[in-house]
Design a protein around this nucleic acid. Structure first.
Lengths: 247, 247
DNA sequence: TCCTGTTTTTGATCTGTGTCAAGGCGAACT
DNA sequence: AGTTCGCCTTGACACAGATCAAAAACAGGA
């Protein structure tokens, strides 16, 4: 349930798979192999990084920015199934084609690894395989928490849940942590939020206004959010305790 | 996206982790170790196998019957986050406590392994770790498909999707496959269905009646379902192509 | 600065699903 | 056979959120 950060995150800038990923215990020759198969790629806001069904020659780790994983039905209904923040991993070893469409929500930098050699690296390096399993289990937990949000929460609770998730991830990255008030840039359009939450963008807008009116959040411009009291937000989200939702 | 069955499933009755699990390439001393730490356990319909938050000393594989994974909010709202059919795996290595409540939907037999030694086995046996990763990735895909169902589909489409998933899993087990008509026992109450689909049991009942009236399904008693034409069901489910939803 | 297109807000109305309530059906037990 | 209990179905009505429509806020370029 708790996000498992590589313990020596801060000391790990040389490792090309950043943060939560496999770097923590990389040894020099593993690092060298990773160096060989990696390259950084940038995408601008709104750009589609990969379409569902595309051939997938890379796996990647988000370095900066926000990307989304979405599914679409033929009639255009869309559902976001994953929100990729810095340190998240994209792509599935052993699979030729992408299952989901990946879109850059903001400007994004990804650290890409050629898939074939990456798979070999996994096969020959047990601790990387373990790290990958751990990350996948975290993602599975996140997806399951999200099923509760989608299936059983009201519009207001959904919005509060989304804000809480992002606030938590941001706080985690900034290490600012428990200073009470948290402020962050929401790098999603209202439409992207509605795709995540299974709502329409009008409903998202209305509920944002309502949360603002009730003082749960403060809006500075359209996208910059201040949460004066995190516990009140969590209450609105209907979360038991403050355990919180993993992303 | 496609379920990955162990290739020599049929020849593997001695392996205590059945079907999809790790058995395919188990060698004799690995099998011996598994023998030592396993024991079979039976549960009767309706019984709670494990509560969220309980200490978890076992991981397990479903041998027969159907079990469910659910989350509950303090006010009682409930969401099923996983449906466990024979060959599915439960439990998370490296975690002390259960995240979800596990309930037997029908009479269930599980093959349980003591967690600590199982973790050691994973650590020392790369191909088991790989199999586990593959299974976890399949589950993640299933969870994400389910997010689309929960977030964007209508009640009728939700029901059709659930029936399609179960029909597909049953067909897979029976190996009866593409004979057009599929019939199976739905081992879930209307309430369990509603928990899976994020609906009320009344709505589930109404939509089942509607699908029956329209000839998409035939009901023999309350729980035995006949699907005369699988493609029509998939159409109702709103699935693109017939790719279908993994569970 | 104005113009243009995108994103967001707000309003009015409609509808699918939830809620509340009653009754039916079958299985197990007396 | 009758009673009880759990599960399922059906109906009437209410409401959260969708849909349709318009205007306001904002960003970027000429």
């Amino acid at each position: 349930m708790t996000r498992t950060l590589a313990p020596d995150l801060k000391d790990c800038n040389d490792c090309p798979i950043r943060h939560r990923a496999v770097c923590a215990r990389c040894e020099t020759d593993e690092l060298r192999k990773l160096e060989e198969i990696k390259n950084y790629r940038s995408f601008s806001a709104g750009q589609t990084i990969m379409w569902a069904g595309d051939r997938m020659d890379f796996v990647a780790s988000v370095v900066s920015g926000v990307a989304t994983l979405t599914q679409t039905m033929e009639d255009g209904r869309r559902q976001m199934v994953g929100l990729l923040l810095p340190s998240d991993f994209v792509g599935r070893p052993q699979r030729e084609t992408a299952s989901y469409t990946v879109t850059a929500a903001s400007d994004v930098v990804m650290c890409c690894f050629r898939r074939k050699p990456f798979e070999q690296l996994i096969a020959s390096t047990p601790h990387i395989a373990h790290r990958l399993l751990e990350m996948t289990l975290d993602e599975l937990d996140a997806a399951r928490e999200w099923m509760l949000v989608l299936g059983r929460k009201t519009a207001r609770e959904k919005i509060a849940s989304l804000l809480a998730i992002i606030a938590r991830r941001i706080a985690e990255l900034d290490e600012a942590a428990d200073t009470g008030a948290i402020s962050f840039d929401l790098m999603l359009t209202r439409e992207a939020m509605s795709d995540y939450l299974g709502l329409t963008l009008e409903t998202v807008s209305r509920q944002m206004s309502a949360l603002k009116k009730d003082g749960i959040i403060v809006l500075d411009g359209k996208r910059h959010i201040i949460v004066p009291d995190m516990s009140r937000l969590l209450e609105e989200a209907g979360d038991d305790s403050d355990g919180g939702l993993p992303v």
